[in-house]
C-alpha cells in the first residue's frame, strides 16, 4: 500500500484557483480551478471557443489571467518577474504547439533545435550537446543521420516528434500540449500517442493536454476536464467522464462522436 500512500500524500505540482480571463465583455475562461499531481495527465476537452485554449495559454504564461492563482511547486507563478517566468518556460516547463512550425526553428537543423534548450541553460560543450541531441532523436524515433537536416525536410509527424524532443531534452516536470496530434494522419497520430504515453510514464511527466479528440484523452489522460463557454462543466476520472457523463453538455459531446 506504500504506493497508494505516496500517491495520496504527495503535494500537487500545479495548483490552479479561480482562473479568469476576459476579453472585454466576452469571457475567455471563468473561475477555473484544479490540482495536478506529479506524474498525472490532465486532459481538457471542449469544442472550439469553449475556452480551453485560453485556459492553456493562461496556464503556460502566454497570457496573463485577470483573476486567480497559479501555484507551481508551491510558488506563485503570476507573481514571477518576466525573467523568472521565462526561465521556468525553458527549464521546468515545456510547451508543445499544435503546429510544429510554431514550436520549431525551421531554419535550424534538427540537432540545433534539440540543442537550443541545452545551450539556453548553459551547455557549452559541442560534443556533449550533440550526443544528447542524438540520444533524444532516437527516443522520438528519428534516425541519427537526420541530425543535420532541417525540419522543413521532415514529414508532419517527424516534425511533431522533433518538437517533443526539443521540449523534453532539459527534463521538464510539467508539459503543456495544445492539440499535439491535430493535423496528423491517423496512423501517425497512433505512433505519436504511443511515444507520448511511454515518455510520460518513463519520465514521470505531469501533462496538461488540450484537445477536442476524445480518443486521444481516453488513451493518454488520467483525468478530464470538460469546458463549455469558458467554464468547467465537468471533471473527473477520464473513463468516468466518458462512460458516465453527468452534465448535459458532456453527454452531448460523448454521444456525438463515433465510438472511442
Amino acid at each position: 500500500m506504500t504506493l497508494m500512500q505516496n500517491a495520496i500524500t504527495a503535494a500537487p505540482l500545479l495548483s490552479v484557483q479561480g482562473l479568469t480571463k476576459r476579453y472585454g465583455a466576452r469571457i475567455g475562461c471563468m473561475g477555473v480551478g484544479f490540482d495536478l499531481y506529479p506524474g498525472e495527465v490532465l486532459g481538457i476537452v471542449g469544442e472550439s471557443g469553449s475556452g480551453k485554449s485560453t485556459l492553456l495559454s493562461c496556464l503556460a504564461g502566454h497570457q496573463r489571467p485577470d483573476e486567480g492563482r497559479i501555484l507551481f511547486d508551491g510558488a506563485d507563478v503570476l507573481a514571477f518577474s518576466e525573467a523568472e517566468r521565462r526561465r521556468l518556460l525553458r527549464g521546468d516547463w515545456a510547451y508543445v504547439h499544435q503546429n510544429p512550425r510554431d514550436g520549431l526553428r525551421m531554419g535550424v537543423s534538427a540537432g540545433g533545435n534539440v540543442g537550443e534548450r541545452l545551450m539556453a541553460v548553459g551547455a557549452r560543450n559541442y560534443a556533449a550537446i550533440r550526443e544528447t541531441a542524438t540520444d533524444w532523436l532516437g527516443r522520438v524515433e528519428i534516425a541519427a543521420d537526420r541530425i543535420d537536416d532541417r525540419p522543413s525536410a521532415f514529414s508532419g509527424g517527424m516534425q511533431q516528434r522533433l518538437q517533443i524532443a526539443r521540449n523534453l531534452v532539459t527534463g521538464p516536470r510539467l508539459v503543456f500540449m495544445d492539440e499535439p496530434t491535430g493535423g496528423l494522419d491517423v496512423s501517425v497520430q497512433a505512433r505519436l500517442l504511443d511515444l507520448l504515453g511511454g515518455l510520460v510514464r518513463d519520465l514521470g511527466l505531469s501533462v496538461v493536454i488540450v484537445t477536442h479528440d476524445l480518443a486521444v484523452v481516453r488513451l493518454l489522460a488520467d483525468r478530464l476536464m470538460v469546458m463549455k463557454s469558458g467554464r468547467v462543466v465537468e471533471c473527473g476520472l477520464t473513463d468516468q467522464v466518458l462512460d458516465d457523463p453527468q452534465h448535459a453538455y458532456t453527454q452531448l459531446l460523448v454521444s456525438s462522436v463515433l465510438q472511442v
Binding site: 525553458r90 526553428r105 535550424v108 540537432g111 540545433g112 540543442g115 537550443e116 534548450r117 541545452l118 545551450m119 539556453a120 541553460v121 557549452r124 559541442y126 550537446i129
Partner: peptide, 8 residues
Amino acid sequence: GLMHVKLY
C-alpha cells in the same frame, strides 16, 4: 542560448 545555436 540562441547565439550558440548559430555557432552549433
